[in-house]
Write a protein that binds this DNA or RNA. Structure first.
Length: 291
DNA sequence: CAAATTTGACCTTA
DNA sequence: TAAGGTCAAATTTG
């Protein structure tokens, strides 16, 4: 719990300065057209992202409530939340008897690499999306068959920033996965995320099942499809053309607790920030940091 | 050999 | 009808 840095404020300050500089530099670079500058500009984007994400993480520690939704989560349920239940008819008994997306419980998140969210996923499709540079991959829970777990997710590389993947989660995990947790549980500092459940207001979506609808609190050892922990390269299952030799530092995003994603208004704010340009980050984020 | 991925066909929705 | 989501046979992987 007390993992707050003693001089956290200073850190934030420094980060802020750094990001400000990076921001200015980016501005400068954007005025030139040469190719090398384009590359540099791209780099700047990444640097800015790092700053921003770090600030977010720090902001997470600020308060428990805030922490849960801010782990770089993006836009809670964007779907057509209103008319979601308009097409209930499930077709013939044939192959395409799948119904449309079940509920509006969706969640997006951008991560530097394909993050391991602690669940076992099985890839079941990949599509080229119109006007999108990168294909979209479809995953369902590995336990769809044996436990009828309905959770799915889609992963797609973000066009504006190919170093990031946008993952959209649908449905909740109803599966119980016993095999992957044990060894990691030893590490206690994470466990408060369980108690955080108690803070969750929306009993609506937590219907007696797993406490973390989309994620478990712990990183898993392996994940099908996209293992992020493997040694030298990231598998190109999603046909990533880029090298993305990111560090494995994505762990900092792991503590997110979904249960709050629709209960807070911060979620929207943050999502807008991250989804859009990072330049606006200062205003809102720093407000939330309010130091 | 079982489980995971790939990939084109099939299905639904707008 | 086009675009996106899913299925499932073929293929790959461990």
């Amino acid at each position: 719990m007390e993992n707050l840095l003693p001089n956290r404020r200073k850190v934030i300050d420094e980060l802020r300065k750094g990001r400000e500089c990076a921001s200015q530099l980016q501005e400068l670079l954007s005025k030139n057209e040469s190719e090398s500058e384009l590359a540099a500009e791209n780099l700047m984007s990444n640097i800015l992202s790092s700053f921003s994400n770090t600030l977010l993480v720090l902001a997470c520690n600020e308060s428990e409530e805030v922490s849960k939704m801010q782990g770089s989560w993006i836009s809670p349920k964007s779907e057509d939340s209103e008319e979601s239940c308009k097409s209930i008819y499930m077709a013939k008994d044939r192959r395409g008897c799948y119904k449309r997306r079940r509920s509006a419980e969706t969640l997006e998140r951008d991560t530097p690499i394909q993050i391991d969210d602690g669940h076992a996923w099985r890839k079941y499709g990949q599509k080229v999306i119109l006007k999108a540079k990168f294909p979209r991959s479809y995953y369902r829970c590995t336990h769809k068959t044996d436990q009828n777990c309905q959770a799915t997710k889609q992963v797609q590389k973000i066009q504006e920033d190919p170093t990031l993947y946008r993952t959209t989660y649908y449905g909740q995990h109803t599966c119980r996965n016993f095999q992957r947790a044990p060894e990691i549980i030893l590490d206690s500092p994470n466990s408060p995320s369980d108690t955080s459940m108690l803070l969750s207001f929306d009993t609506a979506m937590s219907s007696k099942q797993d406490q973390h609808p989309f994620f478990s609190s712990f990183p898993s050892i392996k994940q099908e499809g996209n293992h992020i922990i493997k040694e030298d390269h990231i598998p190109k299952s999603n046909d990533d053309y880029l090298v993305s030799n990111q560090s494995s530092s994505s762990d900092y995003l792991m503590s997110s607790d979904l249960t709050t994603f629709q209960s807070s208004d911060h979620g929207d704010v943050i999502s807008d920030i991250l989804a859009g340009s990072i330049g606006q980050l200062d205003d809102v984020l720093l407000q939330q940091l309010q130091f």
